[in-house]
């Protein structure tokens, strides 16, 4: 596609035998896609429920991470609709390749997501000095006017 052209200079990616010897890449059948999508949505839901259910603030943050894992997986799934070969310009027709746009987008979101998580955990460290159990309801009660 576009910026990935520069990768073509790396020998691994230009080795055409890689594509010749392997059988033509498959796309996912519809049912498999639906099942995967169901698992992905289940992950998002479990994470979301965890945010409400878990009492400990750290566990809440981890639940949010589970939820964001689900969202990331959803982007990967959307990208893999047309196939899962890496989209690299090699000169020959390589077959069904994955859509690089959602992957590029979710890469940004992953970086943002983990920086926010790190920030939140620093906040939790500070809070844990006065609230060693990190029970959210307790923290909330003592810090709401």
């Amino acid at each position: 596609m576009f910026e990935l052209c520069s990768l073509a200079s790396i020998p691994l990616f230009t080795d055409r035998r890689l594509f010749m010897t392997t059988p033509p890449p498959l796309t996912l059948p519809m049912t498999a896609q639906a099942i995967l999508a169901a698992w992905v949505f289940a992950t998002v839901l479990i994470g979301f429920v965890g945010i409400i259910w878990k009492r400990n603030l750290i566990m809440k943050i981890l639940s949010m991470d589970v939820m964001s894992t689900g969202v990331i997986a959803f982007y990967v799934l959307v990208a893999a609709r047309g196939g899962f070969l890496a989209p690299i310009v090699t000169g020959t027709q390589a077959g069904a390749y994955a859509d690089p746009v959602p992957q590029a987008v979710i890469l940004t979101a992953i970086v943002i997501g983990f920086s926010i998580q790190a920030l939140m955990l620093v906040g939790v460290m500070k809070l844990s000095r006065d609230n060693p159990t990190l029970e959210t309801s307790e923290i909330e009660q003592s810090n709401t006017p």
Binding site: V44, F48, I51, L57, K60, I61, M64, M67, S68, V71, F74, Y75, V78, V101, P102, V105, A109, G113, I116, L119, M120, G123, V124, K126, L127, D130, N131, I139, E140, S142, N143
Partner: peptide, 29 residues
């Protein structure tokens, strides 16, 4: 403690909402 908690609550709520937003964006795409 109060400032950190209020900030954390804000960041948590807004980040969770933005995860939903991201899923919406994926569906649009």
């Amino acid at each position: 403690d109060r400032a950190i908690w209020v900030g954390l609550r804000y960041l948590f709520v807004s980040n969770t909402a933005m995860l939903f937003y991201l899923m919406g964006a994926a569906l649009v795409y």
